[in-house]
Structure formats: C-alpha cells, structure tokens
Design a protein around this nucleic acid. Sequence first.
DNA 1: CTGTTAGCGCCTTCAG
DNA 2: CTGAAGGCGCTAACAG
Lengths: 347, 347
Amino acid sequence: MKNHQITIKDIARELNISKSTVSRALTGHPSVKSETRKAILELAEQLDYQRNMMSISLITNKSYTIGIVVPEFITSFFPQVVVGAQEEAAKAGYNVLVSQSNDDYATEVANTKVMLANRVDGIMVSISKETRNFDHLKIFQRKGIPIVFFNRVCDEMAVPKVVIDDYDAAYHAVEHLVLSGRKRIAHLAGPEVLAISRKRLNGYIDALKKHQIPVSDDLVIPYDLNLSKVKIYIKHLMGLENPPDALFAVNDPTAIESMRVIKELGLRIPEDIAIVGFGNNYGSDFIEPGLTTVNQPVKEIGKTAMTLLLGLIDKDTAQWRAVTKTLDTELIIRGSTIKQELPQSKR
Amino acid sequence: MKNHQITIKDIARELNISKSTVSRALTGHPSVKSETRKAILELAEQLDYQRNMMSISLITNKSYTIGIVVPEFITSFFPQVVVGAQEEAAKAGYNVLVSQSNDDYATEVANTKVMLANRVDGIMVSISKETRNFDHLKIFQRKGIPIVFFNRVCDEMAVPKVVIDDYDAAYHAVEHLVLSGRKRIAHLAGPEVLAISRKRLNGYIDALKKHQIPVSDDLVIPYDLNLSKVKIYIKHLMGLENPPDALFAVNDPTAIESMRVIKELGLRIPEDIAIVGFGNNYGSDFIEPGLTTVNQPVKEIGKTAMTLLLGLIDKDTAQWRAVTKTLDTELIIRGSTIKQELPQSKR
DNA sequence: CTGTTAGCGCCTTCAG
DNA sequence: CTGAAGGCGCTAACAG
C-alpha cells in the first residue's frame, strides 16, 4: 500500500465544505466562522493531518531546506557543526539536508547536484581536501541560491565565510612551544590546496621567525591527511641526525596518531618531544598525556554560518555581502607540552 | 532576488517546442527525434537545468527522502551509522534528512513531525533515552510509512529492527573479567527504560551466575547516562568497604569517564580495577590503558537498517515483516583488563 | 514523433 | 464568511 496521507480534500469532503475554507482555517486566516474552524482543526488533529510541504514549496518556490556539505563525519568536528547549524535552522522553520563526501571530490559534486534538485534555499559548505574546481558551487551563486562557507573555505568565491583565525591560532600554538624552550619544531602540515593548511603553516613560520628560530624545510612535511602515513613521517623525523624536540600537527587526529607512533618508538612526551594539535577534538583531553591543542567554538561555527545564510535568503542578491566572520580560538595547554603533576596512577 | 531556477517551460520556450517533448527528452523517453533531443539536452546542460523534485514528489506522492532520527551526535556512533545509511540511500536515489534530539523527548517528537510534513518515504530511528511514549512514531505506521529501528529500539512496535546482541556481548565481556580473575564486578548501567540497558544488565547478571559469583545490588548502579554523575558513582563504589575489582560500563563514554575518575583517585588500571566498556568508540584505543570494549559494526548497522527500510517502501504494508537483524559484535581486549607489555614510553 | 490536457496538494485571487 | 477557478513544475494519458 502506498502511504496514504490525509489531504485538505479529505477534510473538506468529510465536513462537506470547500477546500479553500479548510485551507483558510488551517493557515489561520481570520475569515472563517469560528464554529467551522473548530471542526476543521479538530478533524485535522484527529487524522494527524500534516500539510504537504511539497505543494507549498511548489508555490513559493522555496523548499525550507538548507543543504550542508561536509567532507567527513568521522571526527567530532563536523557532526557538532551540523548540530549547531540545525538548531539555528529549526528556529527559523528550516530543515537541513546533510551530505558528506568522504573527502572525495566526485561525491561532493554529486551531492551538490542533489541539493540543487531538492531546491535547497541555501547551502553551507566546507570543501573536501581534493576540491580545486568550484564550478559545482558557483552554480548556486548563478542561480541566486545563497552559499556560506565555513572551516574549509573557497578563496575564489566572494561569499560569506565563517572561519577561525588559523594563522593566529597556529602562531600562538607554535609560540607556546618556543616559549617552553623548544628549538627544533617540526610541522606535519595539511595539503597545500587547503587555505586552512597554508594559514596554519604561515602562522608556524612567522612564529619561528619572530623568535629568531630558523625555519628548516626538513621539519615541514605537508601531507594529504591520510593518517596511515603519519607513521612514516614521524619515523623519518625522529630518525634525523638532529631530530625535532617539538611537533606542531595540523590537526588533532594527526597529533594523536603521531603520539601513538612516538610512544611506540619508546620516546617520552613531552620530555623528548612536545606535541601540539589543532581542533580540541573529542579524545584530546583523555589521551595521555593530554594534548595541548587549539580549541575552536565548534557549535558556534555552525550557528554563525547558518544565521548568516538565513539572513541571505529572500534578500536581493545585490544586498549580499561577502563578510568573513572570524571566531575566537583558545590554546588549551595540556601535558603534551608541559609536564604536569597529575594526581593519577602511580608509575 | 528570489532564486531563479530553470524550468522545462523555459527550455520549451527557448527552443519553441512543447513542454511535453522537453519532458520526454529529459526523462529519456525514446520517442523524441534525436535531433530535438540533442538540442534539448544541450540547452539543459548549458542552463544547469535540474528537475524540480518538488513537483515530481507531488505527482508520485513520494519525496525520495528518508528520515533518520538519532538521539545525539556527540559520540562517533550515530554519525557513523548515518554515513552507512546515507551511502545505501544514495545508491537507491534517496536523500536523507537527519535529526538529532539531544536525547530530549520533546525535540524528538518535534523532529518526527517535521519528517511527516516533509513526506519522508520512511524513517530510521534510534530513540532518545527519555522516550517512553511512542505515539509520535506509531503515526508513521498508521500512515503506512515504513519505520525501522536500530540500536535503541522500541519493543512495543512490531517493525523491523537492527540491533546487536547486547545480552550476548555483555555476557562475554563480563565473562572475560571473570576469567581474568575478577570476583567483585561492578556495573554502571544505563537507564532501565532502554531495552539496550536491560539486555546488557541481564548479560552481566547471567555471566556472574554462570560462574557462581553472587550478584550484589551494591555493585549495580543504573544511571541516566549524564556523564557528570559518573564521578559520584565511582567514588561511591571505590569507597565501599569491599570495593569492586572490575567495572563493566554500559558504554564507552561511561567507561572512559570512569577511568579518568579512577586515575584521579590514584588507583591503577587494571591492577586495582579492570574496566570494560561497550561500543569501541573513537578514542577507546588511544586512552591509556587501552579500553577493553565491545566492538559493533557501526557503518554496517546504518547500511543494514537502510536496506531493510528501502525494501519496505512501495511494498504492501501487509508484506512487511518485523524481522530483527542482529549483527555480530566482538570483544576487543586491551590494557584496561589485561596488563599488556607495551613498547612505549618507559615508566 | 509531437502537442494538448488534466491533475498531484495547496494557496491565492476573484466572485459571490 | 464561503466557494470556484487558476496555477506552481512536472508527468502521464490522450489525441493527433
């Protein structure tokens, strides 16, 4: 049996009145005799009537749906952003269509097509690490569908963005390493195509320069964020004749995987090498030692991006302004950089 | 400017042909002169034409959207399930509307209403820990919209379910503690309203009975999964005059939080107390010591539930069978129960 | 092979 | 206050 939904027609027939009257009562139009209105509302309630959004979408040319395009759903970051965004959307009566691409470009493109077919009223996107061509996103601009980037943004599109100050956060993270006495600080960086990687790299470089520490190419390794490769890089770094005494990892998963490898090598953290991550992901507080990392206001990112996006809907495109909101970060210092006296298991 | 989508009408006008011909060409109907077809497809491509799903939904009374209702998005479990489900849905041309309720009953109800208004063709649900009344879900049954439960299921509804054998997994987890020599095994249990909690509790009880270990009420603490309370319970347990030598936690977050508290108390894991969790969540492998826990095939749960659900759509309700698929689990033994020689940082 | 018509569920004129 | 008619974008049935 096809699913059998109650329609206005059903209610009208049952009550033997016209469809338009039912529609009026249901939409709260005042010009309905209170008696009739009451009967209609009661019957609607009783039959679990739900107005079919499809039809109203057809009329208004709005879907009341926002698309969210994210690269992955493994770490806690994107799910949390989605939660924040969803809360904000719900307040405004919007639904959210989420798609994740497994960091795969082709999937991202396919997903955005789906968003188009579903007539999303706007999209919030964080691009995959493979994305270099933005045609699939520019379509939205051309069609007048607002788009807001967050986290991994697209530099070449003049649309609103929600980011954190990656440069600044990286700068302070690395400075923290310098101030705690480290001289040879390695950086496991992200892919160069991501602006986010480049900014963190620049923060790293400038912090070193500021403190008259030479930037050594040997110590900077950009990689594709495929964690299985971390082991190779760490072994290489620690095998140098002058190995690093600190590591700034482009994100927490990288930092955590690095810690695992370093422990395997029998080295001590932070005595032999200090580690700083980025993201304050789930788990960075209970790994041992705790991971010093940059905290970002995850849910806030989602909320901010959604608020920005909703503000663009129904506005004339001419009024759109490509603001970039930069949210504050905070360096959380834990045991991976500073030896801490923990009241925990005796060794 | 409202977003201006290209329609069949636009293409027809441009090419000066009828709308039906355009529609036929676009839907791959053979009866279109290849010349005309070519012109249509080219123009459509050029204009980024995307058929409006709203209208076809209106006709077919299908939305090609599946709702997924989950209680939370903090741990990696549900996001991963969603990924699995989404992959399966995409293969069949379906979208996914995800809603999370923050484990709040009222939000869950509101979310399901949204699903109804959006005419989802089916829903996959895992209930919140507060949910005791299932009227909001029974509506779907009544309307002939298929529903599949996963993980946290509703016993009183005869619909397909995808679960793991919680009883069996708990039994083996606890038996592992017994076989490793523990005699006083505590259990931080989940809320009794969740079937999942009861099954794990029963597995715990039966494993103890099987091995002639008395089940002590003092050692079983059901709680509402609010992690901030774990500290109180652990302190209470460890303060008993005859404290437990092992703890079976209802899930990994509980286990991990317990480990934190236990370390704070200056106790050693596993020497003073062994810990077993449930779920093999993200982080359970890199906490120290590694957490012995029950691994569940997360993505597989999502895929299986979605496959089951898609199989129900368009079928006569009479053909629906309330199968329950039970997926295999595996106990992963790590350092929290067995002292392991780790080739890592010297102590 | 192509055009015309009707209708999906709803809302919004326009007439009573 | 209420009813009838038209149309949103698309497809399907019915003519050519």
